[in-house]
Design a protein around this nucleic acid. Structure first.
Ligand SMILES: [Zn+2]
Ligand SMILES: [Zn+2]
Ligand SMILES: [Zn+2]
Ligand SMILES: [Zn+2]
Lengths: 134, 134
DNA sequence: CTTGACTCTAAAGTTCGCTTCAGGGTGTAG
DNA sequence: CTACACCCTGAAGCGAACTTTAGAGTCAAG
Protein backbone atom coordinates (compact mmCIF):
# COMPACT_ATOMS: atom_id res chain seq x y z
CA UNK A 1 0.00 0.00 0.00
CA UNK A 2 1.37 3.34 -1.09
CA UNK A 3 0.79 6.99 -0.40
CA UNK A 4 -0.24 9.11 -3.34
CA UNK A 5 3.28 10.47 -3.83
CA UNK A 6 4.86 7.06 -4.14
CA UNK A 7 2.04 5.74 -6.33
CA UNK A 8 2.43 8.76 -8.60
CA UNK A 9 6.16 8.23 -8.80
CA UNK A 10 5.77 4.55 -9.66
CA UNK A 11 3.09 5.35 -12.19
CA UNK A 12 5.11 8.13 -13.75
CA UNK A 13 2.48 10.84 -13.27
CA UNK A 14 2.09 13.81 -10.93
CA UNK A 15 0.19 13.71 -7.67
CA UNK A 16 -2.22 16.27 -9.07
CA UNK A 17 -2.79 14.12 -12.14
CA UNK A 18 -3.73 11.24 -9.86
CA UNK A 19 -6.30 13.26 -8.01
CA UNK A 20 -7.56 14.54 -11.33
CA UNK A 21 -8.00 11.00 -12.68
CA UNK A 22 -9.91 10.14 -9.57
CA UNK A 23 -12.25 13.10 -10.06
CA UNK A 24 -12.72 12.06 -13.68
CA UNK A 25 -13.66 8.56 -12.64
CA UNK A 26 -10.69 6.85 -14.28
CA UNK A 27 -9.17 5.84 -11.00
CA UNK A 28 -11.38 4.44 -8.25
CA UNK A 29 -11.37 6.46 -5.05
CA UNK A 30 -8.91 4.52 -2.88
CA UNK A 31 -9.28 3.61 0.76
CA UNK A 32 -8.09 6.16 3.24
CA UNK A 33 -5.76 5.88 6.15
CA UNK A 34 -6.80 7.10 9.61
CA UNK A 35 -5.24 10.46 8.77
CA UNK A 36 -7.25 10.74 5.57
CA UNK A 37 -4.34 9.92 3.27
CA UNK A 38 -5.15 7.88 0.16
CA UNK A 39 -3.67 4.36 0.15
CA UNK A 40 -3.01 2.77 -3.20
CA UNK A 41 -2.76 -0.90 -4.06
CA UNK A 42 -0.42 -2.34 -6.68
CA UNK A 43 -3.53 -2.77 -8.85
CA UNK A 44 -4.11 0.97 -8.72
CA UNK A 45 -0.55 1.58 -9.86
CA UNK A 46 -1.12 -0.80 -12.75
CA UNK A 47 -4.19 1.19 -13.68
CA UNK A 48 -2.22 4.41 -13.66
CA UNK A 49 0.25 2.84 -16.03
CA UNK A 50 -2.57 1.62 -18.24
CA UNK A 51 -3.88 5.16 -18.46
CA UNK A 52 -0.46 6.48 -19.27
CA UNK A 53 0.26 3.93 -21.95
CA UNK A 54 -3.12 4.55 -23.53
CA UNK A 55 -2.37 8.27 -23.55
CA UNK A 56 0.98 7.57 -25.13
CA UNK A 57 -0.70 6.03 -28.17
CA UNK A 58 -3.12 8.90 -28.53
CA UNK A 59 -6.21 8.04 -26.53
CA UNK A 60 -7.86 10.89 -24.66
CA UNK A 61 -8.96 10.43 -21.07
CA UNK A 62 -12.51 10.08 -22.33
CA UNK A 63 -11.43 7.32 -24.71
CA UNK A 64 -9.57 5.66 -21.89
CA UNK A 65 -12.69 5.73 -19.74
CA UNK A 66 -14.47 3.85 -22.51
CA UNK A 67 -11.67 1.31 -22.78
CA UNK A 68 -11.67 0.74 -19.05
CA UNK A 69 -15.40 0.17 -19.19
CA UNK A 70 -15.10 -2.32 -22.04
CA UNK A 71 -12.38 -4.08 -20.12
CA UNK A 72 -14.83 -5.12 -17.43
CA UNK A 73 -17.99 -5.34 -19.52
CA UNK A 74 -18.94 -9.01 -19.88
CA UNK A 75 -20.96 -8.19 -22.99
CA UNK A 76 -18.06 -6.51 -24.76
CA UNK A 77 -16.01 -8.25 -27.38
CA UNK A 78 -12.54 -7.80 -28.67
CA UNK A 79 -13.87 -6.04 -31.74
CA UNK A 80 -15.25 -3.23 -29.61
CA UNK A 81 -11.76 -2.51 -28.45
CA UNK A 82 -10.33 -2.93 -31.90
CA UNK A 83 -12.86 -0.48 -33.30
CA UNK A 84 -11.70 2.19 -30.87
CA UNK A 85 -8.11 1.53 -31.78
CA UNK A 86 -8.89 1.71 -35.49
CA UNK A 87 -10.81 4.94 -35.07
CA UNK A 88 -7.87 6.42 -33.20
CA UNK A 89 -5.53 5.21 -35.92
CA UNK A 90 -7.67 7.09 -38.42
CA UNK A 91 -7.55 10.26 -36.38
CA UNK A 92 -3.81 9.99 -36.11
CA UNK A 93 -3.43 9.46 -39.83
CA UNK A 94 -5.43 12.61 -40.46
CA UNK A 95 -3.22 14.59 -38.14
CA UNK A 96 -0.13 13.23 -39.81
CA UNK A 97 -1.45 14.21 -43.22
CA UNK A 98 -2.11 17.76 -42.09
CA UNK A 99 1.35 18.00 -40.57
CA UNK A 100 2.99 16.53 -43.67
CA UNK A 101 1.37 19.18 -45.82
CA UNK A 102 2.66 21.88 -43.47
CA UNK A 103 6.05 20.25 -43.48
CA UNK A 104 6.19 20.18 -47.25
CA UNK A 105 5.34 23.86 -47.63
CA UNK A 106 7.77 24.97 -44.93
CA UNK A 107 10.59 22.84 -46.29
CA UNK A 108 10.11 24.23 -49.76
CA UNK A 109 10.12 27.77 -48.46
CA UNK A 110 13.11 27.48 -46.19
CA UNK A 111 15.05 26.00 -49.09
CA UNK A 112 14.13 28.98 -51.22
CA UNK A 113 15.14 31.55 -48.62
CA UNK A 114 18.64 32.90 -49.30
CA UNK A 115 19.02 34.09 -45.70
CA UNK A 116 21.13 37.16 -46.36
CA UNK A 117 18.73 39.35 -48.23
CA UNK A 118 16.56 41.99 -46.55
CA UNK A 119 13.16 40.75 -45.43
CA UNK A 120 11.55 42.68 -48.24
CA UNK A 121 12.82 40.01 -50.61
CA UNK A 122 12.15 36.98 -48.47
CA UNK A 123 10.44 34.25 -50.48
CA UNK A 124 8.79 32.93 -47.33
CA UNK A 125 7.00 36.18 -46.66
CA UNK A 126 6.25 36.41 -50.36
CA UNK A 127 4.62 33.02 -50.30
CA UNK A 128 2.52 33.98 -47.30
CA UNK A 129 1.48 37.17 -49.05
CA UNK A 130 0.67 35.65 -52.39
CA UNK A 131 -2.85 34.76 -53.35
CA UNK A 132 -2.15 31.40 -54.96
CA UNK A 133 -0.90 28.28 -53.11
CA UNK A 134 -3.08 26.32 -50.81
CA UNK B 1 -13.65 49.78 -48.26
CA UNK B 2 -15.52 46.91 -46.68
CA UNK B 3 -17.58 46.25 -43.62
CA UNK B 4 -16.29 43.62 -41.25
CA UNK B 5 -18.68 40.99 -42.59
CA UNK B 6 -17.53 41.35 -46.16
CA UNK B 7 -13.86 41.57 -45.16
CA UNK B 8 -14.25 38.41 -43.12
CA UNK B 9 -15.92 36.64 -46.02
CA UNK B 10 -13.16 37.67 -48.43
CA UNK B 11 -10.50 36.69 -45.95
CA UNK B 12 -12.15 33.37 -45.20
CA UNK B 13 -12.47 33.92 -41.46
CA UNK B 14 -15.31 34.75 -39.09
CA UNK B 15 -16.26 38.22 -37.98
CA UNK B 16 -15.41 37.26 -34.42
CA UNK B 17 -12.01 36.03 -35.52
CA UNK B 18 -11.36 39.43 -37.10
CA UNK B 19 -12.19 41.29 -33.92
CA UNK B 20 -10.07 38.79 -32.04
CA UNK B 21 -7.07 39.42 -34.31
CA UNK B 22 -7.53 43.11 -33.75
CA UNK B 23 -7.52 42.65 -29.97
CA UNK B 24 -4.39 40.52 -30.30
CA UNK B 25 -2.66 43.21 -32.30
CA UNK B 26 -2.35 41.18 -35.49
CA UNK B 27 -4.72 43.38 -37.39
CA UNK B 28 -4.48 47.16 -37.02
CA UNK B 29 -7.61 48.82 -35.66
CA UNK B 30 -9.30 50.07 -38.82
CA UNK B 31 -10.91 53.44 -39.39
CA UNK B 32 -14.52 53.74 -38.38
CA UNK B 33 -17.50 54.97 -40.28
CA UNK B 34 -19.78 57.66 -38.82
CA UNK B 35 -21.91 54.88 -37.33
CA UNK B 36 -18.92 53.28 -35.65
CA UNK B 37 -18.63 50.43 -38.14
CA UNK B 38 -15.12 49.24 -38.98
CA UNK B 39 -14.04 49.92 -42.57
CA UNK B 40 -11.42 47.66 -44.07
CA UNK B 41 -9.04 48.36 -46.92
CA UNK B 42 -7.91 45.76 -49.46
CA UNK B 43 -4.59 45.78 -47.59
CA UNK B 44 -6.37 44.65 -44.45
CA UNK B 45 -7.94 41.78 -46.35
CA UNK B 46 -4.49 40.78 -47.61
CA UNK B 47 -3.28 40.77 -44.05
CA UNK B 48 -6.12 38.51 -42.99
CA UNK B 49 -5.14 36.10 -45.73
CA UNK B 50 -1.51 36.29 -44.64
CA UNK B 51 -2.55 35.32 -41.14
CA UNK B 52 -4.64 32.48 -42.41
CA UNK B 53 -1.95 31.07 -44.68
CA UNK B 54 0.60 31.28 -41.90
CA UNK B 55 -1.79 29.39 -39.64
CA UNK B 56 -2.23 26.79 -42.33
CA UNK B 57 1.46 25.93 -42.23
CA UNK B 58 1.49 25.68 -38.46
CA UNK B 59 2.36 29.10 -37.11
CA UNK B 60 0.56 30.19 -33.98
CA UNK B 61 -0.89 33.67 -33.74
CA UNK B 62 2.05 34.60 -31.57
CA UNK B 63 4.47 33.37 -34.23
CA UNK B 64 2.52 35.29 -36.81
CA UNK B 65 2.81 38.45 -34.76
CA UNK B 66 6.58 37.98 -34.82
CA UNK B 67 6.56 37.42 -38.58
CA UNK B 68 4.49 40.52 -39.15
CA UNK B 69 6.92 42.48 -37.05
CA UNK B 70 9.91 41.17 -38.98
CA UNK B 71 8.12 42.03 -42.19
CA UNK B 72 8.31 45.73 -41.41
CA UNK B 73 11.49 45.79 -39.36
CA UNK B 74 14.21 47.50 -41.43
CA UNK B 75 16.88 45.78 -39.35
CA UNK B 76 15.52 42.30 -40.00
CA UNK B 77 16.99 39.99 -42.58
CA UNK B 78 15.69 37.10 -44.50
CA UNK B 79 17.46 34.70 -42.18
CA UNK B 80 15.34 35.88 -39.27
CA UNK B 81 12.29 34.72 -41.12
CA UNK B 82 13.94 31.54 -42.25
CA UNK B 83 14.94 30.76 -38.68
CA UNK B 84 11.32 30.94 -37.59
CA UNK B 85 10.28 28.72 -40.43
CA UNK B 86 13.01 26.22 -39.62
CA UNK B 87 12.08 26.17 -35.97
CA UNK B 88 8.48 25.51 -36.93
CA UNK B 89 9.60 22.78 -39.26
CA UNK B 90 11.42 21.20 -36.35
CA UNK B 91 8.34 21.37 -34.15
CA UNK B 92 6.26 19.80 -36.86
CA UNK B 93 8.77 17.03 -37.37
CA UNK B 94 8.66 16.27 -33.67
CA UNK B 95 4.91 16.07 -33.75
CA UNK B 96 5.03 13.81 -36.76
CA UNK B 97 7.49 11.52 -35.04
CA UNK B 98 5.30 11.24 -31.98
CA UNK B 99 2.28 10.50 -34.13
CA UNK B 100 4.18 7.94 -36.18
CA UNK B 101 5.14 6.08 -33.05
CA UNK B 102 1.51 6.07 -31.95
CA UNK B 103 0.48 4.94 -35.37
CA UNK B 104 2.94 2.10 -35.38
CA UNK B 105 1.80 0.76 -32.02
CA UNK B 106 -1.88 1.04 -32.86
CA UNK B 107 -1.46 -0.60 -36.24
CA UNK B 108 0.43 -3.49 -34.73
CA UNK B 109 -2.22 -3.98 -32.08
CA UNK B 110 -5.23 -3.76 -34.34
CA UNK B 111 -3.61 -6.33 -36.59
CA UNK B 112 -3.16 -8.65 -33.63
CA UNK B 113 -6.74 -8.32 -32.44
CA UNK B 114 -8.88 -11.22 -33.61
CA UNK B 115 -12.08 -9.23 -33.10
CA UNK B 116 -14.35 -12.08 -32.07
CA UNK B 117 -12.84 -13.09 -28.77
CA UNK B 118 -14.10 -11.77 -25.43
CA UNK B 119 -12.34 -8.65 -24.21
CA UNK B 120 -10.56 -10.66 -21.59
CA UNK B 121 -8.32 -12.00 -24.34
CA UNK B 122 -7.89 -8.80 -26.34
CA UNK B 123 -4.26 -8.27 -27.23
CA UNK B 124 -4.79 -4.54 -27.32
CA UNK B 125 -5.87 -4.40 -23.70
CA UNK B 126 -3.08 -6.86 -22.90
CA UNK B 127 -0.54 -4.55 -24.45
CA UNK B 128 -1.87 -1.59 -22.48
CA UNK B 129 -1.69 -3.63 -19.30
CA UNK B 130 1.76 -5.05 -19.81
CA UNK B 131 4.77 -3.48 -18.20
CA UNK B 132 7.14 -3.70 -21.16
CA UNK B 133 6.80 -1.72 -24.43
CA UNK B 134 7.51 1.94 -24.63
C1' DC C 1 10.58 21.25 19.36
C1' DT C 2 11.17 22.59 15.04
C1' DT C 3 11.95 22.00 10.35
C1' DG C 4 10.74 20.21 6.08
C1' DA C 5 8.51 16.94 3.22
C1' DC C 6 4.25 15.09 2.67
C1' DT C 7 -0.91 15.10 2.53
C1' DC C 8 -5.74 17.15 2.34
C1' DT C 9 -9.68 20.22 0.09
C1' DA C 10 -11.98 23.31 -3.16
C1' DA C 11 -11.55 26.47 -6.52
C1' DA C 12 -9.31 29.03 -9.83
C1' DG C 13 -5.82 29.49 -13.45
C1' DT C 14 -3.32 27.87 -17.74
C1' DT C 15 -3.01 27.63 -23.16
C1' DC C 16 -5.03 28.51 -27.77
C1' DG C 17 -8.09 30.37 -30.83
C1' DC C 18 -11.73 31.47 -31.04
C1' DT C 19 -17.31 31.42 -30.04
C1' DT C 20 -21.20 32.70 -27.45
C1' DC C 21 -23.86 35.70 -24.74
C1' DA C 22 -26.22 39.79 -23.27
C1' DG C 23 -27.90 43.91 -24.56
C1' DG C 24 -28.01 47.16 -27.61
C1' DG C 25 -27.67 50.44 -32.27
C1' DT C 26 -27.98 50.68 -37.70
C1' DG C 27 -29.50 50.07 -42.45
C1' DT C 28 -32.61 48.70 -45.91
C1' DA C 29 -36.31 46.21 -48.37
C1' DG C 30 -41.13 45.52 -48.67
C1' DC D 1 -43.75 50.52 -40.01
C1' DT D 2 -41.59 46.48 -39.43
C1' DA D 3 -38.91 42.77 -40.26
C1' DC D 4 -34.39 41.24 -40.68
C1' DA D 5 -29.59 41.30 -41.45
C1' DC D 6 -25.89 43.59 -40.04
C1' DC D 7 -22.86 46.10 -36.66
C1' DC D 8 -21.16 47.49 -31.74
C1' DT D 9 -19.16 46.39 -26.76
C1' DG D 10 -17.39 43.70 -22.88
C1' DA D 11 -17.33 39.59 -20.65
C1' DA D 12 -17.79 34.87 -20.24
C1' DG D 13 -17.46 30.11 -22.02
C1' DC D 14 -15.26 26.07 -24.40
C1' DG D 15 -12.19 21.77 -24.45
C1' DA D 16 -8.21 19.09 -22.72
C1' DA D 17 -5.51 17.80 -19.16
C1' DC D 18 -3.80 19.24 -16.00
C1' DT D 19 -1.35 22.93 -12.57
C1' DT D 20 -1.52 26.40 -9.26
C1' DT D 21 -3.13 28.66 -5.26
C1' DA D 22 -4.57 29.08 -0.59
C1' DG D 23 -5.07 27.49 3.63
C1' DA D 24 -4.53 23.73 6.75
C1' DG D 25 -3.34 19.08 8.89
C1' DT D 26 0.42 15.13 9.39
C1' DC D 27 4.67 12.70 9.93
C1' DA D 28 9.61 11.68 10.55
C1' DA D 29 14.26 13.23 11.49
C1' DG D 30 17.48 15.68 14.23
ZN1 LIG E 1 -17.44 7.75 -24.50
ZN1 LIG F 1 -9.10 -7.21 -29.26
ZN1 LIG G 1 13.82 34.67 -46.36
ZN1 LIG H 1 7.47 36.27 -29.90
Amino acid sequence: MLNIGEAARQGGVSVEAMRYYERQGLLAAPDRDANGYRRYTPAAVRRIKFIKRAQDVGFTLRDIGDLLFLKVDPGASCSDVRDRARAKLGEIDEKIEVLMRMRFALAEWTDACPSEAPVSECPILDALDRDDET
